[in-house]
């Protein structure tokens, strides 16, 4: 359609005359791809609009209301946000959530990366792969309960072991300074295999010949990792980091089953606080405002990560 129009257009100078058809052809291609893109996106868009976008917009509206779930909401402007700005429990929840995210994502990513590389470089065993995925097959509430027991001060086998070796017992879930770290490690245990498998899928996408080349060069294990594996894995690693950071900011189940936010407020992470405000205290407007703030924080972090890690670029292509 555009092409025909351009053909009829008066031709003014040669350099332009040459470039126009090429540009037009590309544009035509883009338009036809837009049509395909729309078709390809229809089902996903339905899901996105109905089950994510609409509820999120509704939540945004509710964050400006006083709403207890049982009566209609009343609009109160920015009151919830003003109240949050001076809510010490909110600020503390940000602090402890950050603690959790740093420990959880830090340990989990490094360990999963090592594990994925170990699986790629040292074994093809399906049994190993199956075993490291086992924790992820157990529902997280159960995982939390099992560790709650294993770590119990009086009845847990870990403290019995410490006691046997003459080491002081540790209140893994009951000590204010340790509780959040314990919860983070419990989730590392459950998600290690999962994250390793994601990374492993990325490693599988690395062509074999680059390893051949490295072998020919006589590169050691560490050098192969540094200069072959890591750069080529970067897009997948970036993806895994974004997903795990966003996911661990939303920590909830493990806290709900074990500490319930205590001791004092040591494990009252933001998402747990949101839940308590919404469903225990029936302060849904306030909880919505907290959730909006959490969303903004997460979006900012994801954006930053994407920029820092240049997630869209694959070194393979270049």
């Amino acid at each position: 359609m555009t092409i025909t129009a351009d053909k009829e257009a008066p031709q003014r100078d040669t350099p332009r005359k040459r470039s126009v058809p090429k540009k037009v052809k590309k544009k035509a291609n883009r338009d036809s791809q837009l049509k395909s893109a729309v078709l390809f996106l229809i089902p996903a868009s339905i899901g996105f609009i109905v089950f994510f976008a609409w509820p999120a917009l509704r939540g945004l509206y509710l964050s400006f209301t006083d709403y207890n779930l049982l009566r209609p909401p009343t609009f109160i402007g920015f009151d919830n946000y003003v109240a949050i700005s001076t809510d010490p429990v909110f600020w503390n929840s940000l602090k402890v959530t950050l603690q959790y995210v740093v420990i959880n994502v830090g340990v989990q990513t490094v360990a999963a990366l090592l594990l994925a590389v170990l699986m790629q470089r040292f074994t093809r065993s399906m049994v190993v792969r199956g075993v490291i995925m086992l924790p992820y097959l157990i529902a997280n509430v159960i995982v939390a309960l099992v560790w709650f027991w294993l770590c119990d001060y009086n009845l847990g086998i870990i403290n019995a072991g410490l006691d046997f070796f003459g080491i002081d017992k540790v209140g893994f879930f009951g000590n204010e300074n340790i509780a959040m770290g314990t919860i983070a490690m419990v989730n590392v245990w459950r998600h290690l295999g999962y994250t390793a498998l994601l990374l492993f899928a990325g490693l599988q996408a690395i062509p074999k010949d680059v390893y051949e080349a490295a072998e020919v060069d006589g590169a050691g294990e560490w050098r192969v990792f540094r200069s072959v594996t890591l750069p080529l894995l970067r897009p997948v690693l970036a993806f895994v980091l974004v997903v795990t950071v966003v996911g661990s900011f939303q920590i909830f189940d493990t806290i709900a089953v074990t500490t319930g936010g205590g001791p004092v407020d040591a494990t009252r992470a933001i998402n747990y606080y949101i839940y308590q405000r919404a469903f225990e205290r029936l302060d849904f407007g306030y909880a919505s405002a907290l959730a909006v703030i959490l969303m903004i924080i997460l979006a900012a972090i994801a954006l930053l990560q994407n920029k820092l890690l240049r997630a869209n670029e694959s070194d393979l292509e270049r």
Partner: peptide, 23 residues
Amino acid sequence: LNWKGRDKVFAIFLIALMVPGIF
């Protein structure tokens, strides 16, 4: 696929990752 506004639309879809469960 190449189409106008692709990355912007993708970014919007990505925000769904951050929509909390209580919403």
